[in-house]
Design a protein around this nucleic acid. Structure first.
Lengths: 231, 231
DNA sequence: TCTCGTATGATTGTATACAATTATACGAGA
DNA sequence: TCTCGTATAATTGTATACAATCATACGAGA
């Protein structure tokens, strides 16, 4: 594990606040709440069986993630995530994943390199066997390794944030073996570029990898099925 | 104002939580606390004359910003910001400001364009007069306009976050008239590229603008004077 | 002397009570 | 009927009380 554990993993799951935070984020991202809908502390608290305190703390975090807007002494209103937001995130991620790959080329450790190789090798196996669940897991892990390997706390933080943000959408996009297989092949190319100490190539490949992931998502129509808003 | 007011402006200044949040962020960024130093809720509360509740909520926000790390049932520890972090932020910002300029070229409104022109014109005046304070203010505003003009909630959010993050450092870098003047000239070039509907040029100029800002900061030695950590 | 377990204190997690603010409803006056 | 002001209710902001967890100190036993 990297020295910088992303927030969700360290302070969550075992606290009420963390559970509330994740539940609300999931609900907002999955479209349970209407845009501009008001979230009331007591209502959420009762629904989840907790008091207002953890709910309030979760609200503060959601606000910082841009998922809700808190107007002092008034209320909390969901901001939601639109199709355009997702598109924008993928373009931004494309740039940052490229930078990450570039920096990883310079800073990756022997251990990280070995885990990447193992990851790609294993993924190839699961792709052939049609193991979607494992494939998705390995895909996540590949990116996490690269985030850690880039040796930049700031960049790692940003990318993990975005990754979380689009996780639900992304999960569905990998739900086809063909994309999963293609994705893993792209991972392999990025890995080779890093091995060859070719930062330009690594950056470009990582750029393309994100764009491909997005375009596949749009093409496959899985994304539209997920979001049902009118734009 | 844009449709998406950044969090700090909406829910702060008038709440204890907001004040605590800003105070702690300022203290952490300015190096008041040692790295890995523990922040205790009651101590902070007493120091600022508030109860634990607003302190806790501020902690949750600081954690999400990556400035502190909260270990459940243990404590909150400052993460701080190193020279490397600042360098990374500027590189990341360089990419994102470039993307922002590109998108602004496509989406800027007539009103935003006019405000940009006015901004550059005014800044030229204040640069000649040596008005540092106004120059810094206009510089901030120029970037804010561009963030709004790019018409991407996500990108605007990210860039405003980073902007806040390095604000203290940046303020000092503009504290020389020569850089302020050069910076404004670069703004003018970006503005011209946007006016000419030349996204490639706008992107490249915005990239360079950030890199220049960072290099000037390093060269001038203002940054080293600010941070006193051993790396 | 060392180790381990227990007890005590400190600190955070959560719930609740109270204060402040905002929204709404209702009625008086024009 | 309309407007405005007041009263009331609802909601958030803050403080505090209590519960749970963790760290430390101390002493019993080997």
């Amino acid at each position: 594990m990297g020295s910088y554990d992303v927030k969700q993993e360290v302070s969550d799951k075992y606290s009420l606040r963390g559970r509330v935070f994740h539940k609300l984020r999931e609900d907002i991202l999955s479209g349970k709440y209407e845009e501009h809908e008001e979230l009331k502390e007591v209502a959420i608290g009762e629904e989840l069986g907790v008091s207002r305190t953890p709910v309030r703390e979760a609200f503060r975090q959601l606000e910082l993630e841009g998922l809700i807007q808190i107007i002092p002494n008034k209320g909390a209103y969901v901001t939601g995530i639109t199709e355009n937001d997702v598109k924008d995130i993928y373009v931004i991620r494309s740039l940052l994943e490229g930078l990450c790959a570039r920096w990883a080329t310079e800073h990756i450790t022997k251990e990280q390199m070995e885990e990447m190789e193992e990851n790609v090798y294993l993924a190839k196996f699961h792709a052939e066997k049609g193991h979607l669940e494992q494939l998705a897991e390995l895909d996540n892990r590949f990116h996490d390794i690269m985030y850690e390997a880039c040796h930049s706390k700031m960049l790692e933080h940003q990318l993990k944030d975005f990754h979380q943000y689009v996780l639900r959408v992304r999960k569905k996009t990998l739900a086809t073996i063909s994309r999963g297989s293609a994705s893993n092949h792209e991972h392999e190319l990025i890995l080779d570029a890093i091995k060859d100490k070719n930062p330009d190539m690594a950056e470009k490949l990582a750029n393309d990898h994100m764009i491909n992931a997005y375009q596949n998502m749009v093409k496959s129509g899985l994304y539209e099925a997920y979001h049902t808003e009118k734009e």
